[in-house]
Amino acid sequence: MAGFVLIAVAAFFFPGVILRTKSIASGRKGPGIFQPWKDIAVLFRKGSVFSDTTGLIFRIAPSVTLATVTGAMLFLPFAEQKAVLSFEGDFIMFAYLLALGKFFTIIAALDTGSSFEGMGASREALFSMLVEPAFFILIATFAMFTGYTSFSVIFNHFFITGNDYVLIYSIIGAYLLVQIAMIENSRLPVDDPKTHLELTMIHEVMILDYSGFDKALIHIGTYLKFAIYGSLIYNLVVPAGWNVILQTGLFFAVQALFAVVIGFTESFRARNKMNKNPKFILTLSSIALIAFMVILILTEKLA
């Protein structure tokens, strides 16, 4: 349960930290740390405008997507506590639930009949498809290294093996997760959420027609997803056996660091050219294969 609650709390600060980092890095005064949530409060107060073309799918998609994200949160452990739901193979459910959310986001964009949104949908479908193998190879290395197939148990046993070189693997894994999170949440270098031209957007163009309540749900989903990946990264670098109070502090520190990294990346980096993106994403799969090699060496299968 702790994992679930902590992710929800972290999601509360996450977008604000990114925003502050970007403001400071670009020398602006910028909005306050809670601005994103204030925006959401505004959205909740507002009414909605729906396109005539849209139908049922467009209306249910944000709710379904948010439900997939909260569902995925149930599988993440914290410290030595088990996650709310923990069973063998829960990470498969985790990944496929998030994919279900993607599915609905994509068809909701197609529901508007807009060529812009169709374009965004096509790109999002392609990129999230390409990133899938990287994530699965990564969790395969988890399973191979620890011999378990559930997030809770894997992270509990991650550092117990007594092999100090695990840290090398943790770092590669954390790097991969940061990149996967950036792609899954449509941030730089694959997509730029602050771009102003529909033709160059991916995720933003898909949700152009949303307003009010539904848009708020979409934003909440994105923030939670950031915190979910942050929590995965945290579990990968901090041993589960440490003191719980210390860990709570570290949890927020890691989340904050993750947000700052995103903020800095977005301040100092340009977005990839659109047709470079597939190559960029496929590179992640090869990095995941490096992680696999590291594990092969650690488990002494490859000497």
Binding site: T53, G55, I57, A95, Y96, A99, K102, F103, I106, I107, A109, L110, D111, T112, G113, G118, A121, A125, L126, S128, M129, L130, V131, E132, P133, F135, F136, I137, A140, S285
Partner: peptide, 25 residues
Amino acid sequence: IAALSLIGGLAIFCFTKAFGIVFLG
């Protein structure tokens, strides 16, 4: 594992297309 997950991703690509183009818009 990588191939099966790729199949899953490609299937999503394919059926968002099929459903979206035929039934939506």
